[in-house]
Design a protein around this nucleic acid. Structure first.
Length: 552
RNA sequence: UGGGAUGUAGCCAAGCGGUAAGGCACGGGACUUUGACUCCCGCAUGCGAAGGUUCAAAUCCUUCCAUCCCAGCCA
């Protein structure tokens, strides 16, 4: 992890006169179990775990489960799986905010007793009206100065279930005229008859985030509570809780800018709509920025971590280009994925001077610069498949693939010369014909022959059919959030293209390449964990190769 | 005169009084049995703007401008 402003703060806190002198750095990642993690969370995970790691400290995983009406167990395991997938481990330090409900309640009673909290009987509407506006102060609740004994009695009866939902709340007594809305006597506890996924029906009152969070942090021995920028306004309240409650530590909240990426959406609400309206194929659709989607698509955790590392950490709200994520993915896959040949849009290539009954083997390296990946064999015959794009009747300028009369190398096999082509009834090229240069075995160009183009191919006689999913950006505009309504109309119609009968060299089914394969000259592809079967393989395109050829 | 935060290239981002790092993107070139990879070269007389302090300012001061966050019994 590169250095960032959080390290400056920690160093000060660790100094002899600092807030955390002599302590081990301890952070936490506190997701709310109400949805799937996405790449934005990966930044928080990277910062929370990475910062602890950098300082030889610890990072806890904590489910922030203070609102049972929105949360559900089913997300807990999915979240754990995603964090683990990114390579992080919390040992036995897995917590729930609900682990501290009893302690949180105790702190609330204490605040009442020292006259810093009171039970308020305003309705939600009344409270809103009395809160004032951004430019005018709020009015104190009529219950603000009630006797602490009375508040305590009421609060205990709230817990006991004597009042209906919404009838009253526990509020902190701070400052109704503060410019910071969070300090206008914020609600600490609300009554909510909702079965909690862990505590069941034990509780009828639940603490608010602003009260629960600092207490959980302190109880877990957190030194630095790292969160995103929208909580800057909450820090005074966080500090108020820390200094007015009787807690075993003094965690410090530090905020950083969350991650934005263009051509996609990150809010849970918008992702949910895409899933529920079946615009995409579930939360793990490979086009989604969810971690499970990216995993299914074939992104590696290493690439995602590197992406976060290079983006850095700052206080400037930012939107990173999708291009940059792809760059990181390509870089990692280039290093690790084995190479194979595949033809996505096949046309026949017939080598006219190659004997019809002959077949030979060539050995090809699995990786261009990592020899430890070994090699595999491919078969060659007179009847091959090549990419439709690799032939033109009339060559464009600077096109150096196949066209009548031109010399091209079939990778690892032979140099061939295009002799002609055939058209079908609709005028489409249906077959390309060529002759091979026998002395170019292995693809070695004969002395004095210049062969600019090398194309990929597969043998018609033993290739496999596979379904290929080609993915592109989910949206057609860089900032779908800016086009508020109708953002569903901004979905890129070409965000998925399905090719049903691509041709793959058969070795792919026996090669061991955990990060998937590079289909040479096309991109990186990973078998789809959800849809692929032995009989009908499905591969997802993770990312294309960089393409610098542009016909003019 | 509500509070808070932030402005360095198309996108991220270093910089903390000594004369604008790095990455992506982009442009040019070399190499190439992947038009990939790799390797060179180029890319802010300029740091939101205007004043001021100083031998010296992106860094300090003043004023202004722009953008974002906050009025849940959500997190």
């Amino acid at each position: 992890m590169g250095r960032n402003f959080i390290h400056d703060i920690i160093d000060q806190d660790l100094a002899p006169d600092g807030r955390h002198h002599g302590l081990k750095i301890h952070t936490r990642f506190p997701p709310e179990p109400n949805g799937y993690l996405h790449i934005g969370h990966s930044k928080a995970i990277y910062i929370d775990f990475g910062t602890a790691e950098k300082y030889g400290g610890l990072c806890n995983l904590r489910m922030d489960d203070t609102n049972p009406s929105k949360e559900c167990v089913s997300y807990v395991e999915a979240i754990k799986e995603d964090v683990r997938w990114l390579g992080y481990d919390w040992d036995d330090r897995f917590f729930y905010a609900s682990d501290f409900f009893e302690e949180t309640y105790r702190q609330a009673e204490r605040l009442i007793k020292i006259n810093l909290a009171y039970v308020c009987e305003q309705t939600a509407d009344e409270m809103r009206e009395n809160r004032g506006t951004l430019t005018s102060p709020g009015k104190p609740s009529p219950w603000r100065d009630r006797d602490p004994e009375e508040s305590l009695d009421l609060f205990r009866r709230m817990r006991a279930g004597e009042f209906p939902d919404g009838a009253m709340t526990l509020r902190a007594k701070i400052d109704m005229s503060s410019g910071n809305m969070n300090l206008r006597d914020p609600v600490l506890y609300r009554i909510m008859r909702e079965t909690h996924h862990r505590t069941g029906d034990d509780w009828l009152i639940y603490p608010m985030y602003d009260f629960s969070h600092p207490i959980s942090d302190a109880m877990e021995g957190i030194t630095h509570s790292l969160c995103s920028l929208e909580f800057v306004d909450h820090r005074p309240l966080y500090d108020w809780v820390i200094s007015n409650c009787d807690l075993p530590g003094r965690p410090r909240q530090v905020e950083f800018a969350r991650l934005g990426i263009n051509y996609t959406v990150m809010s849970k609400r918008k992702l949910r709509i895409l899933v529920e309206e079946e615009i995409v194929d579930g939360w793990d659709d490979p086009r989604l920025p969810t971690l499970c989607g990216m995993r299914r698509r074939g992104y590696t955790p290493e690439a995602i971590l590197k992406f976060n590392e290079r983006n850095g950490v700052s206080n400037v709200p930012s939107t990173v280009e999708f291009d940059f994520l792809e760059f990181c993915v390509r870089e990692d896959l280039n290093e690790r994925s084995q190479r194979v040949m595949a033809v996505l849009d096949p046309i026949k290539l017939t080598i006219e001077n190659y004997p019809a009954d002959k077949e030979e083997n060539f050995t090809v390296e699995n990786h261009p610069f990592n020899p430890e990946h070994g090699s595999h064999d491919i078969t060659f015959s007179r009847d091959l498949w090549i990419e439709r794009d690799d032939f033109m009747i009339e060559p464009a300028r600077k096109y150096f693939r196949l066209y009548p009369g031109n010399l091209v190398r079939l990778r690892a096999a032979y140099v061939i010369r295009c002799t002609g082509y055939k058209l079908d009834d609709s005028g489409q090229v249906s077959e390309v014909t060529a002759e091979y240069l026998p002395e170019s075995r292995g693809g070695v160009a004969p002395d004095g022959t210049k062969v600019r183009g090398t194309i990929h191919w597969v043998n018609q006689r033993d290739c496999l059919d596979a379904e290929i999913h080609l993915y592109d950006k989910l949206f057609t505009v860089p900032d779908p959030d800016a086009h508020d309504a109708d953002y569903k109309d901004l979905i890129n119609p070409d965000s998925i293209t399905i090719i049903s009968h691509a041709k793959l060299e058969p070795a792919i089914r026996t090669m061991d390449s955990p990060t998937g394969f590079q289909f040479m000259r096309l991109g990186y592809f990973k078998e789809d964990s959800k849809l692929s079967t032995a009989a009908e393989p499905v591969y997802n395109r993770v990312v294309t190769l960089k393409e610098t050829y542009r016909p003019d």
